Simulated assay, not measured.
Amino acid sequence: MDLVNMTNGTNSTTSPEEELTGVLGTVDLVLTTVTLVVIMIGMGCTQTLNDLGKVLKRPFGIIIGFVVQFFLMPLVGFGLAHAFNLPDALAISVVIVTCCPGGSMSNIFAYWARGDISLSICMTTCSTILAIGMMPLCIFMYSSGWTDEDSKIEIPYVSVATSLATILAPTAVGMLIKWKFSKISEPLTKVCSIFGLIGIFTGIGLRAYANPEVYISTWETWVVAAILPPIGFTLAFLIATSIHFNYSKRRTAGIECGCQNVSLALTIINLSFPPGPLRADMQIIPSIYGPLMGVEAGLFALCCQFYFRVCQTKSKADELDQTKEDIAALYGSNFGTTTDNDEKKLKELEMTGYTNTEVDVSDEKNSGDVVIDNIEENERKEDDTTGNETNSSEVTLQI
């Protein structure tokens, strides 16, 4: 069945988007906008230009996001639509969702999962920019089997630009706060992150209350919407593992690729298809995917919080992987992976005790930077015979 025949239906059923009108619609729009802005201000309070510069100098995490979000996930969506024999409208909406870049929601969950916020912000920003060219290509390639030759799916470039603005402008404000008022940046980050979570789940509940009929769908629809976020997470996590990213960056890459920009997907559907049963059906997948993505990412972040609070300190594997990446950066290797020379240097450092550290996870600072600073300091003092030990409030070196 092609889209021309489907769009000629006479049924005047209104879509879930159109039913959310009046006061309820205004509250939802304001809440979503304010939540995104507050989240990104909070994330900006954890960053400096130097933090973002480190990610951009070694952009392999950004490359992972590009490959997963614009090559692997659209292919996965295409395969799932065929495997579950979804109706044409639902199949197209699956493809549209999987072709979308990462959204700001990934940043807040990366924060709560103790991820790398610099990497998360850079991945979100870069994927949104790349979406300008990649989304039309991916949607054309993977939706052609369900669309008519005369059908055209519009890419909302204004919405893409708006998404960029809601990422970059509040982040810049947060970074300015950290620069000028560093004492309040940490508590402000926690307040913003808590507000962000409340705003996200309040919005989910509000839409569910306004449009309960959206959630009365077949089990195939629910399964496809439910497994898309874990698939994106797993693909990115495995690729990050294969290039020896530390666990913090692996979690971040996974969350970023498992959280697509649902608002952008809904905007594409609304711009491309006229009001009617077709548009209403196409909104089902994004409307189910969004809440499930939030719940799944929230549960993952909760598990990470539980793990770190119970263990009290970073795991030895996480600590060693971070040290390896820092050695690679310090001695000139690419993308945070270690060469044979790096491994040799690491063994020398282990013999001298430089990597025997214990880091309190309640401190949000990147322990790797502290390790590098201490390594350099000890190398400068190599000939010093005083025997004094250098102590830090964040890292204790055992030499």
Score class of each variant (00 low, 15 high):
T234C: 11
A226R: 00
I198F: 12
I132C: 14
G232Y: 05
G42R: 04
G103C: 14
H244W: 00
I243D: 05
M43T: 05
F60G: 11
I63N: 02
G61V: 05
I255K: 14
N261A: 08
T234F: 12
S272T: 08
M282C: 10
S185C: 00
K314P: 00
Q47G: 00
I39C: 01
G25Q: 10
V97G: 00
T337H: 12
K347P: 08
N5K: 02
N374I: 02
R251H: 01
I255Q: 13
T385V: 11
S367C: 00
T267F: 12
L29T: 13
Q283N: 13
D2N: 15
N366M: 06
I375K: 06
A210I: 01
K190N: 02
S120A: 15
F71H: 03
Y209T: 13
S12H: 07
D148K: 12
M175Q: 00
Y307M: 09
Y111W: 04
T162E: 14
G102C: 05
I139N: 13
M43K: 02
D51N: 14
Y331L: 05
W146D: 00
I117C: 08
C304F: 03
L20D: 00
I239T: 03
G174Q: 12
Q312A: 08
R279P: 02
G294L: 00
N374A: 00
A89R: 10
V262N: 15
Q322D: 05
T234M: 14
N11V: 09
S367K: 08
I64K: 02
D369S: 14
G61H: 04
K178Q: 08
T323C: 15
T13M: 06
T355S: 10
T32I: 07
T313A: 12
P16A: 07
S104H: 06
Q283A: 09
I255E: 09
E18A: 15
S106M: 02
G258L: 10
M105R: 08
P275R: 13
E376M: 15
W179S: 12
I375Q: 01
F70W: 13
I285E: 01
I139G: 15
L228S: 03
C304P: 01
E358L: 13
T355P: 02
G22A: 03
Y142L: 11
S287V: 10
T26L: 05
V34F: 05
G65L: 05
V23R: 07
Y157Q: 02
L130R: 05
I92M: 15
G133A: 14
S272E: 01
T128Q: 00
V173D: 00
N366R: 06
T313N: 08
Q283H: 06
E364V: 15
Y157V: 02
E154Y: 07
L176G: 10
A329K: 15
N246F: 03
T313W: 04
Y307P: 00
T355E: 09
L197K: 03
K249L: 11
A161H: 10
T338Y: 12
P101K: 14
N388D: 02
S272Y: 07
E256Q: 13
V38Q: 06
L299P: 01
M123H: 12
S163F: 09
I285W: 04
S12I: 07
I239C: 08
M40W: 01
A208Y: 11
G254E: 06
Y209S: 14
Q305I: 10
W219Q: 10
L164R: 01
T13S: 13
A83Q: 04
L299G: 11
N270D: 03
G205Y: 09
T147R: 12
R114P: 03
D342I: 08
T241F: 11
K152Q: 07
D28L: 10
V310I: 08
L29H: 07
